[in-house]
Design a protein around this nucleic acid. Structure first.
Length: 255
DNA sequence: ATGGCCAATTTTATTGGA
């Protein structure tokens, strides 16, 4: 099966491109982030017409996540376990054939030391604890915009980003904790040397210069990850008219 | 080639993204 994760940076702004991409690639599961759209404005009909079900946790203006699947997910969970109704829409998960799929949009954290940075750390802690708990019950696949570049090899210009919210030791250590606790960064197992990115700033010709970072990750619990055949970034989707600033990341599992 | 921010909203500026 093929699992993709893609931060679309508004599902409405990406409507044409996202549907065309879905029709072209037809992955089995697609984790989407930054829908920037409430549930009632999500394009359920168009996606259903392409043969997909959607588990959606939308939000107006900011955030918003979804999982698309050929068969409907079961036991869909919205947000973190203790979430309040007004919480930021950053997590949705569901189960199919004994595997749990999660789509996550980790906070950026604005600037190190800011209030949003503290929120990023606290949210991450809660999310990681929840992911560990789910992984104790069933195999898990997490697709998401983690807003963490796992290592210097995931950054075109590591020195420039070293102290940023995407590369700071505080977030890298948290991610490393999950990776030493039964989860695998599937892309990394197939691209040990790094140098492949998933996000490029819209500004300063970052994409033509390939001045990017790999912050969009697919994590899988070890048994699932052991069956992975390949992993790749669909850079074509970052080209052309009105792209998202993120490219889709895809993995193939023999499961 | 892949091209010099973009998207939503508070809309003719501002805010947030990463």
């Amino acid at each position: 099966m093929i699992v993709a994760t893609w931060n679309v940076n508004s599902i409405r702004a990406r409507y044409d491109r996202a549907l065309a991409w879905l029709e072209r690639h037809r992955p089995d599961f697609v984790c989407l982030q930054e829908l920037k759209t409430p549930d009632d404005a999500f394009p359920f009909d168009a996606i259903q017409a392409l043969g997909y079900h959607a588990a959606v946790h939308g939000q107006r203006t900011y955030n918003g996540v979804a999982i698309l699947s050929r068969r409907p997910l079961q036991d869909i969970q919205i947000g973190l376990p203790d979430h309040a109704p007004g919480d930021q829409a950053r997590l949705v998960s569901g189960e199919l054939d004994g595997t749990r799929f999660m789509s996550v949009y980790v906070p950026t954290g604005a600037r190190v030391g800011s209030e949003k940075w503290q929120y990023k750390l606290a949210w991450l802690d809660a999310f990681l604890a929840h992911a560990r708990k789910l992984a104790a019950a069933a195999p898990v696949v997490i697709g998401g915009d983690f807003n963490i570049a796992p290592a210097a090899s995931a950054v075109a210009k590591p020195e420039r980003w070293q102290e940023s919210v995407l590369c700071h030791p505080e977030v890298r250590e948290r991610l490393r904790g999950l990776l030493s606790d039964g989860f695998v960064d599937v892309f990394r197992t197939h691209h040990r040397d790094g140098g492949v990115y998933s996000w490029w700033d819209y500004r300063q010709l970052a994409f033509p210069k390939n001045d990017g970072l790999r912050i969009d990750l697919v994590l899988a619990t070890e048994n699932l990850a052991a069956s992975s055949q390949r992993a790749w970034v669909d850079r074509e989707e970052r080209k052309g008219s009105k792209p998202s600033d993120h490219a889709p990341v895809l993995i193939e599992l023999d499961a």
